[in-house]
Design a protein around this nucleic acid. Structure first.
Lengths: 175, 175
DNA sequence: TGAAATAATTAGTGATCGCTATATAATTCG
DNA sequence: CGAATTATATAGCGATCACTAATTATTTCA
């Protein structure tokens, strides 16, 4: 998972993945079926653990302002937590990959996240929950890209606050 | 340039690049020195032509509100203009590349753009021009990522408007 | 302990990578 | 027209890719 996160799906080979796990390539294929199978397991684990803060924030927040603020704060924290593998594996783990299956895998997870956010916003009685969810996902994608481009944690935090407070200021109830 | 834009630096081979130009690999090396040399030329051309709207907007705008609004609008237009090569070549052309030189090339151009935006904002007498420039760059990176992930032009526009108006609403003069 | 089943390792498959030495064709000049 | 020069194209260099057949080592039970 760390290797995929660090260098992307195409950037790491099966030999190195097996070595990191402590097995040989044939054992990797016996256990996961293919490189893509291992990637699927890694991405799902990442979404469950590292990406769990998203559903947690939505569950715990009692109003959209608090939710969005906390979402951006925790995203900036998460994306800059480990200097060795910055950004989000779901956002950027298969970016520019030559394997369409790997891209489709992460795209599906992004779709689920966007759907959960949009549904929560709509449930809060907000106008334009769809475009709002798109804007949030785009901002998160930007944060992930910036983290991967090496932006320091403090700068990431400051920029995240600008964006979150900006979007919060534009919230309005459904017509 | 189109091939690099479409599939990223690592995603396209020299043989295909040469074929697209209409020459053979040895001629490509005679003309550009290396794959990286051709990428450099392509990225610089892209920054000059397709990315020219950024400096144009800054030059023409008479206040930050107008500038930011126009920046996001034109970015969304540009990133979704060609379905075959969506997003921004400078933002995502070398993302997850295994060649650090290619990544450094695009990183330098992003740094220049961020610098130009920050300087312009500061010249407009705005508070926190640095974090603001970071936020703008991050939003643009998010728009590029969303475009590359296949988001339709209209949705991209709507989300861009949410983000731009949000940031505009948070502008404040320097202390 | 000895045979059967399982696991791990080595080595190698064809394909593609960036890049280039060699060979062929086209052009320029005496 | 023929020789020297330049530009083109073909083919192949070593390296790496995902993946696996064949071999060796280990363990499991009678």
């Amino acid at each position: 998972m760390t290797l995929f996160h660090e260098r992307g799906y195409d950037g790491v080979g099966v030999a190195e993945l097996a070595k990191e796990i402590g097995i040989n390539p044939p054992s990797l294929y016996a256990a996961f079926g293919s490189k893509l199978g291992l990637f699927e397991r890694a991405v799902e684990r990442y979404a469950d653990k590292d990406g769990g803060f998203i559903t947690d924030v939505l569950d715990r927040s009692r109003n959209p302002e608090e939710a969005i603020r906390e979402l951006f704060l925790q995203a900036a924290d998460s994306f800059a937590a480990d200097r060795r593998c910055p950004g989000c594996l779901v956002m950027d783990g298969a970016r520019n990959s030559t394997d369409p299956d790997a891209s489709a895998l992460t795209a599906t997870l992004r779709g689920k996240t966007r759907g959960a956010i949009a549904a929560w916003l709509a449930g809060q009685g907000l106008h334009d929950a769809g475009p709002l969810a798109d804007a949030l996902m785009i901002a998160l994608a930007g944060l992930s890209a910036a983290a991967r481009d090496g932006m320091p944690k403090d700068n990431l935090h400051a920029a995240a606050e600008v964006m979150s407070e900006g979007i919060i200021g534009r919230l309005e109830p459904a017509a």
